[in-house]
Nucleic acid binder design. Structure first.
Length: 190
DNA sequence: TGCCGGATCCTG
DNA sequence: AGGATCCGGCAA
């Protein structure tokens, strides 16, 4: 069984709060009659149009329109011409903020690596076909874990945003301390 | 219309 | 360390 999808109010909050609260939650994708499920262990917050590392910093464009839409929807994009990344839109519509899901601990029906945003999408089967989908539905959604868990949260700089000026070093990456499925931010970049 | 570069990953 | 691979965004 799967629990109920988190309600829209969960997403309509400050992005950093949503990011931290997503750790330990379960991401679920129904596809081809199976339920793929993983535990969220690493995320990054992209806090709004003023965040130079965020796609929304370019304003409302065809690509970023979902980010500027209502909270609780998935923003999926193609990166490097071959990988997908999935975000959850946060804050009230018009804000342009989202949380990038970077790594999962595999739970059900996950055959493959989920350690990194591109791998997470590949193994969960998330593609551009899911861009804009409502996360309060029953296809792609997030639930509370069956029982509460305790863990420490590690906070660090986001990966791959060295170009973002003053925002490059903002500590907006959050992960579960000691979890083996957290991605290795290969070379903190420069 | 053309070009530049990226919220990545794999191989050597 | 370098290549794959393509589209969005901006300059011209």
């Amino acid at each position: 069984m799967t629990g109920a999808a988190l309600p829209r109010e969960f997403y309509a909050r400050p992005t950093v709060d949503v990011a931290r609260d997503l750790l330990g939650m379960q991401l679920i994708h129904r596809v081809d009659g199976t339920v793929r499920r993983g535990r969220i262990v690493e995320v990054e917050a992209y806090v709004g149009a003023h965040d130079l590392a965020s796609h929304s910093s370019r304003g409302v464009t065809p690509r970023t329109s979902v980010m500027y839409g209502p909270p609780g929807h998935a923003y999926v994009y193609l990166i490097y011409g071959m990988h997908h990344c999935v975000n959850v839109v946060t804050e009230p519509a018009g804000h342009g903020a989202a949380v990038l899901l970077r790594a999962l601990e595999p739970l059900d029906s996950l055959a493959g690596n989920t350690r990194g945003p591109g791998l997470l999408c590949r193994t969960m089967g998330i593609t551009l076909a899911r861009n804009g989908i409502d996360l309060t539905g029953d296809v792609l959604f997030i639930t509370l874990p069956p029982e509460a868990e305790r863990f420490e949260i590690v906070q660090s700089a986001r990966v791959g945003v060295a170009y973002a000026g003053d925002w490059a070093d903002a500590p907006l990456r959050f992960s579960i301390a000691g979890n083996p499925y957290v991605s290795r931010a290969s070379g903190s970049r420069r």
